[in-house]
Amino acid sequence: MSAAIVSRWARRYVLISALFLLVWQIGMLVGFPRRTEVLLGMFGFVLHMIFGKAYSLVPSYFERELEITRAPAVQFPLTVGGTCSLAVSSVLPGLEWLEPIGAILWGLGVGVFLVGLLWTIRGNLTGEATGTGEANADRRSVDRVANGFVPVALGYLAIGSYEAVAIHTTLPMLFDGYFPRVSHLLAAGTATMLVFALGFRLLPRFLVASPPARLVILVLPAGALGPLLLATTLGSSSTWFALGAVIEAVAVIGFALVYGVLFVRSERRRVGFYGVLTGVASGVLAIILGLSFALGHLTPSLALAHFRLNVLGFLGLTIVGVAYQFYPPAIGTFRGASNHAALLSIGCLAGGLLIQVVGLVVPLRLLILTGELLTLIGTVVYVYQIIAVFHAR
């Protein structure tokens, strides 16, 4: 019964994540501020997908069942309400009073999430017990290593969320109140780290292939250390910032290589796999751009391109690909729900993002608008596919 409850709530998180993506893409076209994009894209789209799937995956990967089964239901209105409040206050003048309310709601929701997961895995924090069956006994060593980095991602979530609350309230801040530190802690520290850790367990099973173990061992520690150096030295031209950029580059490029190997080795060709493939390619482009920042080549338009490549590209397209694997479009009951439509959504998202990036680098406003329109079309198709599948279930 508890598994059914968690699964039902996971679908709600996936749906609200998709709706946040839709609002974000509309906001791009109408000119939402950068802060609003971060809130809708990172807090809304990416993290709510992660919340929903983490409730389903993390307990089973640690050979446990979610003990506080009401946690997803309690958290949902808190983080959704917090994200909406923060986003609205960032885009509409005169509503600054919503900021502390939104931040507190977000912090409470994240607290529920962390307590729910950490209480569940409290006797197995290192992930020694993996829940790996005998049929996958050869994967057990990679599973065990990957498990060990899940608490690292949860730690980044706690630190980043606390700082977000502190910035908008009277709580003492851990850093200097510079909001991009929060977004880096949550994007690189939490979301990307969980993509690595859970991805090394999930993706080999999806593709029925084995990852290069040495690359896995390289990626995970680099992915754990890089965000700390980046977030704490962000905005400086110090050697530590450059080192953080290089370490994070090793992690993302290494993960891209692992997925590339899995993709080539696999005989399967599911539509969702192409989402992850375009996601890791976007991640490599984002890393190249990020490394240029460490060399002093930073402008507002390049920073926006970097953000979109990471959140809509690497994290976003990976999320879309994994969502299509968990929720196959072909089972959707609505007219137009199909693998071809899903592939169209991936193509529009990836192609539109690439056009946006070119437009931001050149810069050329017409290209940016064209790319934003394409990603909006891709998002609409994605949301439609998800709703069609959930209606069938």
Rank of each mutant, 00 (worst) to 15 (best):
S345W: 03
V74K: 08
T170H: 06
A392F: 04
R335E: 13
Y55N: 03
V150D: 13
R181L: 09
F20C: 02
P329V: 09
A187H: 07
L125T: 07
S161L: 05
G116M: 08
F263K: 13
L47Y: 11
G332D: 12
S7A: 15
V14W: 13
P212W: 06
I247H: 05
T132C: 10
A281N: 01
V276L: 15
F293R: 09
E134A: 12
R144L: 09
Q325V: 01
L15F: 14
L154R: 05
R201W: 00
V38G: 00
P204L: 03
V280D: 04
V252A: 00
G332T: 13
T36K: 10
G109P: 15
M173P: 00
F45C: 12
R214F: 04
P72C: 05
L243R: 02
A153N: 03
E248G: 11
F196W: 06
G244A: 05
I101T: 11
A323F: 07
V383Q: 00
G235L: 02
R35A: 11
L295N: 06
F45A: 11
I5S: 13
W24T: 04
G352S: 03
H306N: 08
I355S: 02
P77W: 07
Y327S: 13
L21D: 06
T36Y: 06
G127L: 01
G82W: 06
G52H: 09
L171D: 03
S141V: 13
T69I: 15
P204A: 02
L40N: 07
G316C: 10
G347C: 10
P33C: 14
I217L: 14
P300A: 05
W119E: 12
V322S: 10
N147I: 02
R12N: 12
G82N: 06
V91R: 00
S282A: 15
L285Q: 03
S89P: 08
I247W: 04
A209G: 02
F334R: 14
A164T: 10
W9K: 02
T126K: 08
I5Y: 07
I387M: 14
V261Q: 12
I159E: 10
R8T: 11
G116W: 06
A71S: 15
G123C: 04
P300L: 05
T120K: 02
V6Y: 00
F51V: 06
A245S: 15
A342N: 08
L367R: 04
L262F: 08
V110T: 15
T318W: 01
A209H: 05
L374K: 07
L21C: 07
F32Y: 13
V195A: 15
L186N: 13
L157I: 04
F76H: 11
L344G: 08
F273A: 15
V311K: 00
V80R: 03
S2A: 14
L66P: 11
S89V: 04
R265F: 06
I121R: 00
L234W: 12
G81T: 06
G81Y: 04
G283A: 14
F326M: 15
L22S: 05
G123R: 04
R122P: 07
R201V: 02
L118A: 10
F20Q: 01
